[in-house]
């Protein structure tokens, strides 16, 4: 896979090692605590002689080089769920708030990684929504596999979602996926500025609607798996311009993050944007990601 020259020029401000974008991603999984415990999984994998390493910042998550994870009884029974590390972080950030939540929305939920993770961490009712009916099938399969009873599936364009009030809304909208090249190398073949702008325009509409669905003092998590500031800082900045939203500082103990950009090209962003985080692959051998934690005021 060759990385386009224009891509390197564009992102060399925060990516120093572009080679890592062509390397395979370490395999990671999460323990489904609805059905089993972390200790049982550790014990069983030790018996299998499959090496797994617990993550210091998330004790329910493990990485493993073994290609054999999918051939275990635990995989079949839905005791474990394969999920990329960065994709686990948006839910991890609201772990505390989830304890008192009654209603949670996963706004662009398919294939269900975050929905099933939410179900492990809350007794709240979770509405898992996705616009794409074909992807709903995978979402339904994963919810059933994990045994997440407290879930409701909807197939709505988020922009026209019925007016409701949620304690927490997760918005991980369609994006240019630049941070997933280690898993999907063909992302760079389709990479273009037109795609970035197209996504950015849609994301601005979605973040406004998602914010409207959060109840007062509730939390909106906005995340993408892309590097483009137009799809990250600029989208959150747009929300700050249009509403009274306030950003909350994100701290993930023992996890290295890169500060968000407060300006990009000719644009200067609201100072609050400093509270959002970027995850750069070379920092921790992961994919690329962006997360903002937004409080409704």
């Amino acid at each position: 896979m060759e990385i386009p020259k224009h891509f390197i020029e564009r992102y060399s401000l925060f990516i120093k090692d572009f080679n890592i974008l062509t390397m395979p991603l370490p395999k990671s999984f999460r323990v489904n605590t609805i059905k089993t415990t972390v200790n049982d999984i550790k014990k069983r994998f030790k018996e299998y002689n499959i090496k797994i390493t617990q993550l210091p910042y998330y004790k329910e998550a493990f990485i493993s080089d073994s290609p054999e994870i999918g051939k275990t009884l635990e995989h079949f029974l839905g005791y474990i769920y394969s999920q990329e590390i960065t994709s686990m972080l948006p839910v991890l950030i609201v772990k505390k708030e989830l304890k008192n939540a009654n209603l949670v929305l996963d706004a662009c939920a398919a294939p269900g990684s975050k929905t099933t993770q939410l179900a492990c961490l809350t007794k709240a009712t979770i509405i898992a929504n996705d616009i794409d009916y074909r992807r709903i099938k995978a979402l339904k399969y994963n919810i059933e596999r994990i045994g997440a009873i407290n879930t409701i599936l909807t197939n709505q364009d988020l922009r026209f979602f019925p007016n409701m009030e949620f304690d927490i809304v997760l918005l991980d909208p369609p994006c240019s996926s630049e941070g997933t090249t280690r898993k999907n190398p063909n992302v760079l073949e389709q990479w273009s500025m037109q795609q970035i702008i197209k996504h950015s325009n849609l994301q601005k509409q979605l973040i406004l609607k998602a914010y409207n669905l959060v109840k007062k003092n509730g939390i909106l998590i906005y995340s993408t798996c892309t590097f483009a500031p137009e799809e990250n800082e600029e989208v959150v900045n747009y929300l700050l311009e249009k509403t009274t939203a306030r950003l909350e500082k994100i701290i993930i103990p023992k996890f290295k993050t890169y500060p968000a950009l407060t300006e990009w090209r000719d644009k200067k962003y609201n100072k609050q944007i400093e509270k959002t985080i970027r995850i750069i692959p070379e920092l921790q051998d992961t994919g690329g990601f962006f997360i903002a934690k937004i409080k409704k005021c």
Binding site: T125, I127, I136, K140, I143, E144, G147, A148, I149, N150, T151, I152, L153, T154, N155, Q156, P162, M164
Partner: peptide, 17 residues
């Protein structure tokens, strides 16, 4: 299906069969 106590009108599925 076994699902949450309350669902919404737009629900196409819930919980587990």
């Amino acid at each position: 299906y076994l699902g949450p106590k309350n669902i919404i009108e737009k629900a196409i599925s819930c919980g587990i069969p």
